[in-house]
Design a protein around this nucleic acid. Structure first.
Lengths: 349, 349
DNA sequence: AAGTTCGAGTCAACCGGTTTCCTCGGACGG
DNA sequence: CCGTCCGAGGAAACCGGTTGACTCGAACTT
């Protein structure tokens, strides 16, 4: 059997190849500050292969080289959006020879401590921060720290380290769709204030609603959860000044969970989807297709956001920082059953 | 400001406390093979505190001590069930001073490689395997390897390292509920064959259906996904031998996603939930409450499964293995709108 | 009073890599 | 023919902890 009973070490490889530790190290790390005969190089690789050599990560980290570990901080793992991002991060990291550590930022405090530890203990080479929020303690820590890091999804203005998606475009896509169906009064359920993608999405919504000349474009804010969406939906649909029809015929939400909550709330108000109210949400995740009715969404390139963030971070680590990055893939409309033409004022063509 | 500009090392602490490196190391690691005066102990702790000392993980691992890192392998991160487990693992690990690494086992191959690397590179102290499956390459690797590990959720018979929930009980709870409502023909949507929780749930279902004397208890298998649930539901509801009523009045699914898919399929068949068919699923996750109708579920102690698995693994690492463990929390019925009395044969009391 | 034991630490060898500075022999230039 | 340069690789220090063996003085025994 080709298995080694015990870990092979660098010396073992060196011995088998008939060279010194130093040479093996340099060859295996592909350093070009040393000239080696192709023949020697081959022998080293062969020996390493034959012994199934894996460098001990601790020793490596200790000797000043990198750990090849990245850490990703997300605000909520319960949110499938972040899970998708995390998968992108994980897979791309592995492709590049890195490992990724996943941490959840329950209360904002946790993050700061946990990341400090990670960095101080020399466990990670870099940080991917998806949970930036104004005033977050970590931001301050990071800004005065030399550890490589990027912000993804939630941008930090002026950091020059943001990796984001074309969030503004998603609002345009959603509105164009609803406008094309004939909607003239569309409400938006935004995320909590102060969070970049939420703010950007809201502003783009308002700007484009204006450009399209909509009659009404009210906005309500709520958490990115089902309940947040439910409350906001009730707010948007409460009939104003004695009228008996809801003030909007369609709702565009900032997250998928909000859309689910909004749908439940809309039905509880005795309205039908999509006959009375159309609903369109952001982020196309598997569950969207199986809701009742199936939810029309704007698919955001979440997975790619993850991979792009890793690319940016690794570039930073290798001292070739790339500045702010916007993932090139555009948001894509996924048409399903939750959007339709608005109820005509008695008109049934 | 109390921040140190540069990492404090063990020697720095030793110097400040006026003792040797060895003493500091032993004191901070709480080893009792050394007697130290309380006074000295205090000085050491003070010095460490003052300097904000964090041991370098690489150095520590290299010196033969543990890395204090655990790795968790899950079959699919897209499945919120595993995310919940992962949270339990992550938090309990941190409480015990460990870090947890999350890996996704996309194809079964990945896992084996990735875990081998992790272990070979001395990155982790132990493994939490939630994706065991008969014939999984990792099982073989693990059985001949000295690395501490436990299997959670999916048990490996005879390993003496299983951490599981009372899955059989969940079938009993679900069936009792349906039986109490008057259902006499209940279908079960099981997971893929060969996977322990799925098998156990199925067998418990059949056994208890027998004990209750149900008229019919057909079983269909499908992936743990929405689509898997959808296909299986169609199979269960296909009218047999020319009858026009579906052969069952209720469906009990092995996963939440399956329940969502089943609900969609049931509606596509022109049946109402819960008037025509009741649906009850396993695992109570937030989305269940916001479905249409809100889904009745059996809540499994997933988070605790994660914490219990960490406890068991850490015990194993500290050479006090605990054998098979069953999480004590019992499955709990969460009553919502997807279950009701079966349609009477024309009887409306 | 001398030997022994015990408490309280210290010494120094490791762990497995990385990296800096050398060495050594042959080719080449003058 | 001798000095120099260069290609190819080696020696050893070092990274920051951990650990078992060892020391040293005081107390305890007999």
């Amino acid at each position: 059997m080709p298995e080694q009973p015990v870990r092979a070490r660098l010396v073992d490889v060196a011995e088998r190849a008939g060279v010194s530790k130093a040479t093996v190290s340099k060859v295996l790390n592909g350093r070009q500050d040393l000239s080696v005969r192709p023949e020697t190089r081959r022998r080293v690789h062969e020996a390493a292969e034959a012994l199934g050599y894996r460098p001990h990560s601790g020793a490596r980290a200790l000797a000043g080289a990198s750990t090849h570990v990245l850490a990703l901080l997300v605000p909520a793992l319960g949110n499938p959006t972040y899970v998708t991002i995390a998968r992108g991060v994980y897979q791309r990291a592995r492709q590049l020879g890195y490992l990724s550590l996943l941490a959840e930022d329950f209360d904002g405090q946790e993050a700061d401590e946990s990341f400090n530890d990670l960095v101080q203990e020399g466990r990670v080479d870099g940080l991917l921060v998806a949970s930036a929020r104004p005033g977050h303690p970590l931001l301050d820590t990071l800004s005065r720290s030399p550890v490589p890091h990027v912000f993804l999804n939630r941008a930090v203005a002026g950091s020059g380290r943001n990796v984001t998606m074309d969030v503004a475009r998603s609002s345009v896509t959603a509105l164009d769709h609803l406008h094309g169906l004939g909607h003239r009064a569309v409400g938006h359920i935004a995320g909590p204030p102060g969070i970049t993608p939420s703010e950007v999405r809201k502003e783009a919504f308002l700007r484009h609603a204006d450009a399209l000349g909509l009659d009404a474009a009210p906005v309500a804010s709520g958490d990115f959860t089902e309940d947040g969406g439910g409350f906001a939906a009730r707010e948007l649909l409460r009939p104003t000044d004695g009228g008996e029809r809801p003030p909007v015929t369609a709702v565009y939400t900032s997250s998928l969970a909000q859309a689910i909550g909004a749908m439940a709330a809309i039905r509880e108000l005795g309205l039908r989807i999509p006959e009375d109210v159309s609903v369109i949400g952001n982020d196309d995740l598997p569950v969207a297709a199986h809701l009742h009715p199936p939810l029309t969404t704007v698919a955001m390139p979440l997975y790619e956001l993850g991979t792009a963030a890793v690319d940016a971070l690794v570039a930073t680590i290798e001292s070739a920082p790339v500045g702010d990055v916007v993932v090139p893939t555009e948001p894509r409309l996924v048409l399903r059953g939750s959007t339709a033409r608005p109820p005509g004022p008695g008109v049934t063509p």
